[in-house]
Amino acid sequence: MKYKLHPALDYKFYLVGQEKTPLLVIDNFLSDAESLIDFCIKNTSFNRVDNFYPGLRMAAPRDYLYAINHYLAELLENIFDLTPDKIAGCKSLYSMVMTPPDKLDPPQCLPHIDSYLSGDLACVHYLCGKEKGGTSLYRHRKTGYEKITSETIDHYKHSVVNEGALEFEKKAYMNGSNNYFEQIASVDAMFNRMIIYPSNILHSGNIAPDFNFSTDPLNGRLTLNSFIYSKR
């Protein structure tokens, strides 16, 4: 396999919030992680692949997907009860936050979910340093929801609208608790750190007010975002 595990790999996992949701933090994930930045620079083909992500994305190397499935299988089973036979597929994308706060759509100013289907997982592999901002998980104060499911998504959306959470004097990225959302966990970015959590927990990147929206993979908030889909 092209990508090897880092010899100093270390991991911890936590049960966060009132719902005791697993959060896995892996440090020193892959050996020669710098090669992932090199691939990005040499094969730059960033584009807007969806209307929600506030930046640009491009496909990761196919071997990277193999590495996730191969090296993380035991952890995914032990921590998230996601065995290989339950995995329907996955995708990995380089991601760079690029949208200035005043250009955000209102929903982009709130924590979000990647999927409301239980069993799906989201992974963030940081190819940048702490100064670019990590990731936080949240609870919606009014409903108490931390994870959003197919049964609760309509109630959650109506609550957010009715309480005025989408009305702003000045738009900004989510970065810490506010009147509507409580931060229940936060993990700093660190080069070659990966975090994994259920896709349906409310979360947001920690994008500070003075964030530098660089288009350079060497200087921007470069991450590899992977999504692992479970069978229904």
Rank of each mutant, 00 (worst) to 15 (best):
G220K: 04
N69D: 00
I87A: 13
F39T: 06
M190E: 15
C123M: 05
R57M: 15
S136I: 05
V161G: 08
S186R: 03
A8T: 08
P61M: 13
E77N: 10
R221K: 11
G176H: 00
V160K: 14
K4T: 12
N206E: 15
C40G: 03
I184P: 00
A185M: 04
K147C: 15
F46W: 07
E167P: 00
V97N: 08
P111Y: 01
S118K: 11
G133S: 08
F168Q: 04
G133Q: 04
A33M: 08
T135I: 14
V187T: 08
T149D: 13
L121C: 09
C109Q: 01
L222E: 01
F168W: 11
E77H: 02
D102T: 04
K103C: 14
F80A: 10
G144T: 05
L224S: 13
N47E: 13
R232N: 02
D114S: 06
D188R: 04
L222H: 06
L222C: 04
F213G: 02
T99R: 13
G220C: 13
D216G: 08
D27C: 12
R48C: 12
N51Q: 07
Y180K: 09
N192M: 07
Y14N: 03
I153H: 07
F181P: 01
S199L: 01
S199Q: 06
F211H: 03
T21M: 15
L23G: 04
M190G: 14
D63A: 15
I201E: 01
V161A: 10
P198E: 12
H158D: 09
Y66T: 07
V187A: 09
P54E: 14
